[in-house]
């Protein structure tokens, strides 16, 4: 069953459909929030809020206008922006970067190095690359989520690759 069909079922009052959607996307949303906010606690809070918002506003989702994933990532992006703004005063975001880097769930060095380098990218380049390369969004979906043009997304991804290449050259 597709995400859009599940969303339709939630609006008809099927709670199992919400559970199915939650199970399907929780890891992706948590990971996106983590790579955006670079803090595990904030990422968890943001992911929770996203699903609460989805549950509350699912009737606003119009499957004729776009994919459910685009809508979901759009909510996640805005929730993460809100979370970052709210916590700016108290925490230095980026402290969690080390925490993320030190997780040894890889058995391949290149992947570790690449993720470390990616986390160092400025946010405007990091987000398009995370969305398109790690979460499988198309450049059009990414553009819609970030509220920028598709050309701009492609330029940012290309620029991100250039920065990553420079990082490898320096190293």
């Amino acid at each position: 069953m597709t995400d859009e069909q599940l969303a339709q079922q939630i609006t008809e009052g099927n709670r199992e459909a919400f559970h199915e959607l939650y199970e399907r996307h929780k890891k992706g949303i948590y990971n996106f929030a983590l790579r955006f906010l670079l803090d595990k606690n904030l990422a968890e809070d943001a992911a929770h809020n996203v699903f609460l918002l989805v549950f509350e506003h699912i009737y606003q989702f119009d499957f004729r206008k776009g994919k459910f994933t685009t809508w979901l990532y759009s909510i996640t992006y805005h929730e993460c922006c809100k979370m970052r703004k709210r916590n700016k005063k108290f925490s230095r975001l980026g402290d969690g970067e080390e925490e993320i880097k030190n997780e040894s769930n890889y058995d391949y060095n290149d992947a570790i190095d690449l993720e470390r380098a990616m986390l160092r990218l400025p946010e405007i380049y990091r987000l398009p690359i995370v969305m398109t390369k790690l979460h499988g969004l198309t450049s059009a979906e990414c553009a819609s989520t970030l509220g920028i043009s598709e050309t701009n997304v492609k330029q940012r991804v290309f620029r991100a690759f250039k920065i990553l290449k420079e990082y490898y050259n320096i190293r």
């Binding site: 929780k26 890891k27 992706g28 948590y30 990971n31 983590l34 595990k40 968890e44 992911a47 993320i100 997780e103 769930n105 890889y106 391949y108 290149d110 992947a111 690449l114 993720e115 390369k133 790690l134 690759f161 250039k162 990553l164 290449k165 490898y168």
Partner: peptide
């Protein structure tokens, strides 16, 4: 190098949820 990095992205794993 960019194309090699592009391939490496496909093997980056998702972090486990708490």
């Amino acid at each position: 190098p960019m194309l090699a990095m592009n391939k490496t992205f496909s093997i980056i794993k998702q972090h486990e949820i708490p």
